[in-house]
Write a protein that binds this DNA or RNA. Structure first.
Length: 670
DNA sequence: AGCACGCCGACT
DNA sequence: GTCGGCGTGCTC
């Protein structure tokens, strides 16, 4: 017998299959083996076993030993091989995601993460009929191994978690395993509390990047040996060493955190779908505000849509008010607080209720807007907001790179009040404090709050009602439930609405819906005030009506017209190096190469390859970065990635010191 | 990536 | 002679 093996390596050059003879050993795909390699011995993983001898003329060596304890299963190597072609990454980089770095703790010294956690779970007396229906449909699918994907579209407090738990329970009943994914590590605690109460602590394992190497290894081993049947965690938990997975659940499926931002840049949803194919398992995507891509798939019948419209506790949804900041300006109010928001805050404070103010970060991009009419400069080709670059004093499209002069007067209404939008972050707390001198104001954002304990104490103070007004970034939109919040204010929704990203509208809808969930948790209806210079944007109308469908119907038309997902992909190819010239030259060369590859098809696809752009490299060690953006039509992704992978090999053969990283539908282009 | 091989200049 | 610099090629 002959085995195709990928060795533990660091080089792109050796990231390929090597054929070994199995000898006397009984070898399966997924097995970790020790093999002779060159003058040394290395470890590798078996990807395939056949009895056909390869044609090529090279000496075939024999596998020395199988490391049973650290071996993986056949599905894992299959998924890793698929990831290589989908993300243009190395076999071994894909494989590494499935293998914990650490070593086992010494016997008796195992440390249990979340040891002091209290299990909190009380099964509700009854499920709503919508919940009953969802549970029975999903359970049937798990039972019959139909490999379905469900999109569970449920408003906040509609009891999605109960549906998740019942689905997992069904999988366990069938002798299968389950993975529960949450978007952020901070959210795992609440989930574990409930799951531990429902399924017993011994049956669950936690996997996320904040565990120590040793803890992670031990949890991983508990899953691999079948001691734990349910994996809970952030996106890396999708790589749990489980077999026979009955169901994977992705809570808040629209969240950006499901897409890895560091290399290898995998997409959690893709990986989940791929893994479940082998086991005919079921995927449940839950969200109150599904991603437009997922919803389209549900509409197309690729996913099965389940709606939960009824709120479990029947609390009325908050009232959403859209405030026109142009009007405020015309009425002589130039402050960051509209008259309406001011009024709501005052009355909330009077009745000892609390207030949350969301100040969405300006981030790295600045845009120009007319305060008279709300006009925002957008790229006519790409349809995204232009970003102001101070250095060049130009408006630049972050997709195609076209540059435009900064307008002196508004092209629409000829007003001179067209200028940069955004206010200094520090300013906000100051303004709020002086506007409400008798209120206790606290501030929550990740820039100023560095320590975990600091963050917790700010939240604790708010929970204990010691704080009247909490000002913060996106952080306040998520996290804990507070029952005394009467008013939520979004100070300037335009900052999210005009991010240079095709998803900016989707993200705004999600953000407003999410913060709305913070208002009026008790029996009283809460109020949400959203301030904007562009109140006529369809996104806000949909927010006001709590109508996702309405938002979707408008947004999907734009996506189709612009060929953005789900109708096409945007592929960003990054080049980093310590050699500036090499970086530039390589991205130029890549552009020509890619255009050349596509030209032969004679469909004009090469027009989708944008010219290279220079950018700063924040994260990597290399000092220079350039990138090339490619607009890729629907169904062509695999071919495009294949070309990119080939180009990478080309560079490697020449031993050029330049890194190439590919990112499909990146969340930010800076 | 590593490591060996090999071809060239500089030195005890 | 021979030591070591690094350009090149290979690992089943």
């Amino acid at each position: 017998m002959f085995a195709s093996i990928v060795i533990e390596n660091k080089s792109k050059y050796t990231d390929t299959f090597y054929t070994y003879e199995t000898g006397e050993l009984f070898v399966n795909p997924g097995d970790k083996v020790r093999v002779p390699f060159g003058k040394k011995e290395v470890y590798g993983y078996v990807f395939d076993v056949t009895d056909e001898k390869p044609d090529e003329e090279f000496e075939i060596k024999t596998i020395l030993e199988v490391d049973e304890e650290n071996s993986l299963n056949p599905e894992i190597v299959k998924t890793a091989a698929w990831m290589k072609s989908r993300y243009a990454i190395k076999y071994y980089d894909a494989l590494k995601l499935f293998i914990p770095k650490g070593k086992a703790a010494k016997p008796g010294k195992e440390k249990e993460p979340y040891k002091d956690l209290i299990s909190r779970y009380s099964k509700p007396e009854h499920f709503t009929s919508e919940q009953e229906n969802a549970i029975s449909v999903i359970s049937e699918s798990i039972e019959k191994n139909t490999n379905d994907i469900f999109l569970l579209h449920g408003v906040t407090s509609s009891g999605k978690t109960e549906v998740y738990m019942e689905s997992i329970s069904k999988a366990l009943e069938m002798g299968k395993t389950a993975i529960m994914l949450v978007p952020e590590i901070s959210l795992t605690t609440q989930v574990i509390e409930r799951f531990a109460g429902r399924f017993g602590k011994e049956n669950i394992a936690v996997l996320h990047s904040k565990l120590t190497e040793r803890e992670r290894f031990d949890e991983w081993m508990r899953l691999k040996t079948g001691k734990a049947k349910i994996a809970i965690g952030a996106r890396i938990a999708v790589f749990s060493p489980l077999e026979n997975i009955g169901v994977i659940i992705m809570d808040e499926e629209h969240e950006a955190t499901y897409k890895a931002d560091m290399s290898p840049k995998f997409d959690t949803l893709d990986v989940a779908v791929k893994r479940l194919k082998t086991y005919n398992g079921v995927l449940v995507l839950g969200s109150a505000t599904p991603s437009v891509t997922s919803y389209e798939r549900a509409k197309e019948g690729i996913y099965r849509l389940i709606c939960l419209k009824e709120r479990y506790n029947k609390t009325p949804l908050p009232m959403i008010h859209i405030v026109d900041m142009r009007e405020e300006l015309r009425n002589g109010n130039a402050s960051i607080l509209s008259e309406k928001l001011n009024r709501y805050i005052c009355s909330a404070l009077d009745s000892k209720k609390q207030v949350i103010l969301l100040q969405n970060r300006r981030g790295y991009s600045n845009f120009v807007s007319c305060r008279e009419c709300g006009y925002v400069m957008k790229c006519p080709e790409c349809g995204i907001s232009l970003t102001y670059h101070k250095k060049e004093d130009k408006m630049i499209c972050h997709y195609c790179g076209k540059k435009y002069d900064v307008p002196k007067v508004c092209p629409d209404c000829k007003s001179k009040k067209i200028k940069l939008v955004g206010f200094g972050t520090e300013q906000v707390e100051e303004v709020i404090s002086s506007a409400f001198p008798n209120a206790v104001v606290d501030r929550l954002d990740l820039d100023t709050v560095t320590k975990r304990s600091e963050l917790d104490s700010i939240l604790k103070r708010f929970e204990d009602k010691k704080t009247d007004i909490l000002v913060g970034t996106q952080l306040v939109a998520k996290g804990l439930d507070f029952d005394n919040v009467a008013v939520v204010g979004v100070l300037l929704a335009d900052t999210t609405l005009n991010l240079p990203d095709y998803r900016s509208q989707e993200r705004t809808f999600q953000l407003v819906t999410q913060v709305s969930g913070r208002a009026g948790r008790g029996d009283e209806q809460g109020n949400v005030v959203v301030q904007t210079y562009e109140p006529e944007n369809f996104t806000f109308k949909a927010c006001m009506n709590h109508d996702y469908e309405m938002f979707y119907n408008d947004e999907i038309k734009i996506r189709e017209f612009m060929n953005y997902p789900p109708f096409g992909d945007i592929i960003m190819v990054n080049f980093t190096s310590n050699d500036e010239e090499l970086c530039d030259a390589t991205s130029d060369r890549f552009t020509k190469y890619m255009k050349n590859c596509l030209k032969t098809q004679d469909k004009g696809l090469e027009k989708g390859v944008m010219n290279p752009k220079v950018a700063f490299n924040f994260k990597g060690q290399d000092s220079f970065r350039t990138y090339v953006l490619i607009k890729c039509p629907k169904g062509e992704r695999n071919r495009y990635v294949y070309y990119i992978d080939n180009f990478q090999s080309l560079l490697f053969n020449e031993r050029l010191k330049v890194n190439v990283v590919c990112d499909v539908n990146p969340y930010s282009i800076v």
